[in-house]
């Protein structure tokens, strides 16, 4: 593996780990109560994160969005263990799903929740945006296309 590929893989692992910790924290808070939620923003007497985390947008079909995020990051790590183009394509696909859905949730924060943002959600959205770009580059670079 080239140095550039190594650096790219390291960057993906670091960013995905940060996102994983973020999602794990939000999942923990979801099941253990908002008293454990550290948040800088406030909205009408409640922390902005609490407003976002208790809104209708915080669940999909009854499953907390934070838990979906956690599953997504774990799947992304799983894809890194799969060799070849299939693994790289799977990694890109997972990051793309995460990016698309986190953009939708950020739109909901901006529009439906009138600009009430949760820093942890924005942090995860940022991680997923970077991961989408990095996994996309990793896939497109891939192994050189030559016959043996």
């Amino acid at each position: 593996m080239s140095k550039a590929s190594n650096r790219l893989l390291t960057a993906i692992i670091v960013i995905a780990f940060i996102g994983l910790l973020d999602a794990a924290y939000l999942t923990y808070v979801h099941y253990h109560g908002f008293s454990a939620l550290v948040c800088a923003g406030a909205s009408h007497g409640h922390s902005s994160c609490e407003t976002v985390q208790s809104s209708v947008w915080s669940k999909v079909g009854g499953v907390p969005v934070a838990l979906l995020g956690l599953i997504g990051y774990i799947s992304l790590f799983g894809s890194l263990g799969v060799r070849g183009e299939l693994g790289r394509a799977a990694g890109f696909m997972i990051a793309l799903i995460g990016f698309g859905f986190s953009m939708y949730l950020t739109y909901r924060e901006a529009v439906s929740l009138h600009g009430t943002y949760c820093e942890w959600c924005l942090g995860s959205a940022t991680c997923l945006t970077i991961l989408m770009v990095l996994t996309g580059i990793r896939f497109l670079r891939g192994a050189p296309i030559t016959s043996s």
């Binding site: 999909v60 394509a89 890109f92 696909m93 799903i97 698309g100 859905f101 896939f139 497109l140």
Partner: peptide, 18 residues
């Protein structure tokens, strides 16, 4: 084909989630 498939599946999943 792989990248096209990945994009199509990702978009479909995001649409379902939304």
């Amino acid at each position: 084909q792989l990248i096209g498939g990945a994009v199509v599946i990702a978009v479909a999943i995001v649409v379902v989630l939304i």
